[in-house]
Simulated scan of single mutants.
Amino acid sequence: MKKRTYIITFLLGVVISLLVVFVQLPYYVTMPGAAQALEPLVHVENGDRDKGRLMLTTVRMGRANIAAYLLAHIRPYYELYPLKAIKQEGETDEEYTLRQLQLMEESKEAAIVVAYQHAHKPVTYQPRGVYVMSIVPGMPADHVLQVGDRIVRIDGKPVSTSKQLIEYVRQKKKGDRVTITWKRDGKEQTATLALAPFPQASKQVGLGLSPMTDYDVVTQPPVQIDSEKIGGPSAGLMFSLEIYNQLVEEDITKGHKIAGTGTISMSGEVGPIGGISQKVVAADEAGADIFFAPNEKGAKNSNYREAVKTAKKIGTKMKIVPVDTFADALRYLQTLQ
């Protein structure tokens, strides 16, 4: 009888353990990631080697199981988010990953342009089409276009930027039909779609897709960025600083370990990101001396203000520096001893 009780208890424990590990809940859990050196990822031809280190910071994220859900309630800087806060409506895991990788590509293009322009090196960038970033369920593009498709023509007219596409469609009204030509896996496809009002903006009609301009960037000297499987646009600022540092003779790090985060635009503006507290923790654990945080023009709830609060909580000696532009970060680095 006692042996039978032990067996039942053991089997019950195995079942509970499997449930805790393998049952997925309708949440994502995020936690501090790593601060990764950029020099091995960025390769400017004959670029300078420097003594300091510029680092991008990441947030680890995954679908929450029961164990992760419980940890998020007791571990500092572990955060839970419902699925709809991370993925867009109707978006698959594959589409989400692809969207994040495309955002990274856009970020790298902007980082290259900004760095080369500030270093006064030759750079040109020409738009060559529009990527589909996401699709609104139930809208005309749904089940016709896919995330990652590249739109090249609308009504037979070439489309090279997302602005062109948006402005063309904006002139139309409900029920008007447009013919879209796109490339998928190297093959052109065409479909005629009737425009429809957006679910939450009935006065605005469209195809129901989010577009992103694809640029062809040419530089001298050449540059390559190996972003591996890192997704999202938040490493833009740090990529631009690393590229710049390899282009110029001076070492802008002055031997310091410098981490940070923030999106970058073609004009050099730094934008806010998610998970700023977790990235501060990651940078501190990597021994960073300085951390750049998006200032958002001094907004009350800016990334910078949150980063300062987190730095105080964890007792780091790391200096938190607010930046609104690439030029702000560069000016600060030029004042370092």
Rank of each mutant, 00 (worst) to 15 (best):
K2W: 02
R4G: 14
Y6A: 11
I7C: 11
I16S: 02
V20F: 13
F22P: 00
V23K: 06
Y28P: 01
M31D: 06
M31E: 09
G33M: 06
A35W: 11
Q36V: 14
Q36F: 04
A37G: 11
L38S: 09
V42H: 09
V42C: 08
V44C: 07
N46L: 04
G47N: 05
G47E: 05
R49F: 11
D50M: 03
L54I: 15
L54S: 12
L56C: 05
G62T: 09
G62D: 07
A68Q: 13
L70A: 15
L71A: 15
H73V: 02
H73R: 14
I74S: 14
R75L: 10
Y77M: 05
E79D: 12
P82R: 10
L83G: 08
K84R: 09
K87T: 12
K87M: 14
E89I: 06
G90P: 02
E91W: 05
D93P: 14
E95K: 06
Y96H: 05
L103M: 12
E106D: 08
A110L: 05
A110G: 06
I112C: 04
V113G: 11
A115P: 07
Y116D: 01
H118M: 12
H120L: 08
K121E: 13
Q126I: 06
G129Y: 07
G138W: 01
M139A: 10
P140Q: 10
L145W: 01
Q146A: 12
Q146C: 08
G148H: 08
I151R: 00
V152K: 00
I154D: 00
I154K: 01
D155S: 01
D155H: 02
G156L: 04
G156F: 06
P158Y: 04
V159W: 00
S160Q: 00
K163Q: 07
E167L: 07
Y168V: 00
V169G: 01
Q171G: 10
K172F: 06
K174T: 07
D176A: 07
I180L: 08
T181Q: 07
T181P: 00
W182A: 01
W182S: 03
R184V: 06
L195Q: 03
L195F: 03
P197Y: 01
K203M: 03
L207E: 02
L209I: 04
L209R: 00
P211H: 03
Y215D: 02
T219Q: 10
P221H: 09
Q224E: 12
K229I: 06
I230P: 02
P233E: 12
P233I: 13
G236W: 08
L241A: 14
Q246N: 09
Q246L: 08
Q246S: 10
V248K: 07
I252H: 10
K254F: 12
G255E: 11
K257Y: 09
I258H: 12
A259N: 11
G262S: 13
G262A: 12
M266L: 15
V270Y: 11
Q278E: 13
K279T: 14
K279P: 08
V280D: 03
D284T: 13
G287L: 11
D289E: 14
A293K: 15
N295W: 04
N295V: 01
A299C: 05
Y304C: 13
Y304P: 09
Y304N: 09
R305S: 09
R305H: 13
E306C: 04
V308Q: 10
K309A: 15
K309M: 13
K309P: 03
K313Q: 15
T316P: 10
K317Q: 14
V323D: 06
A329Q: 09
R331A: 15
Q334H: 15
T335Q: 13
T335G: 07
Q337E: 15
Q337P: 13
Q337G: 15
